[in-house]
Amino acid sequence: MSLAHPPKAPSRISRRGLLAGAGALLAAPAVMAQTSGLRFVHAYGETVLERPARRVVSLGYNTHDTVLAFGVAPVGTRYWYGDYAYGVWPWAQPYLGEAKPVMMTGEVSIETVASLAPDLILGTGSGISQAEYAMLSQIAPVLMQPEEFSTYGTPWQSETRTVGRALGMEDKAEALISGVETTFAAARDRHPDWAGRTAVAAWHDGGQTGAFMAEDTRARFLKELGFRAPDALAETAVIDGFYTTLSPEDLSPLDADLLVWISSAERAADLVALAMRRTLGAYAEGREVFADELIAGAMSFGSVLSLPYALERLEEPFALALDGDPATVVPSAAKVGLAP
């Protein structure tokens, strides 16, 4: 034993030393590239792009919207939900043109990504692990969400700026952002009474009721219109940075001035059958808005393309719900049978 050990030990050390040396060699070009290329710091480290990307694989469930907004069609998209070709919803379809991206469903297939020969992999809001990030990084540079945001919590402004930089279109990014911000500011100006009132984006699914909050796209949408969360909801614990679940015996945290149901036609029946909903003031006074699959989808994607689309379709129902007259009917809610 004592003879067997010594010859091995030094070789192990030298191998480790060799690896460290190799690491330093590998790191060297990256350090140099920092001055010439585009450098991104994110939750999984640092990524450097030598030149603006053109073949983008978008792994985030909603990030293909942002890429398309720049007039660039991604070569790969990720399926979230909905029956739309390539996972591209109506608000983004005009930007797709003749492109036919490969849509990936479920887990990310490293092989599929590699076969698309991307020069950028967009991992923001994709939920990929650090290990997957490391593997994908061998195919092409991978961008993740900035460290300060949770996996699915990157605000659309930040996402638009990141993608704009990666595509070498920073000016266009600022133009897109200010365009959407102007649209929201105009809506706030038209409805000064919305400022400071409470609003909730809620869901009911499989017997479980909950609300979107904090960093969630739907909660941010309401916030950008001047609304705030009711105190009772703000006090409940946030799960994964974007939602909370409520006991079926107590839905009172949802009782806001404006209650938006993030739903779909096929789930409306469960919502109508939810007896506890009828104990809420929002129900009794007709302050509920039903967001069907398309509008709920636009709120959920929460992208630079989908947000104006959602706003255009929700401004009128919101105004009707909040007009102070319990007798006014919100057509979307009445249509599925939610109205009192």
Partner: peptide
């Protein structure tokens, strides 16, 4: 139907 306690039970 508007009383949360009643709804909870029934």
């Amino acid at each position: 139907p508007s009383d949360p306690a009643h709804v909870t039970l029934v």
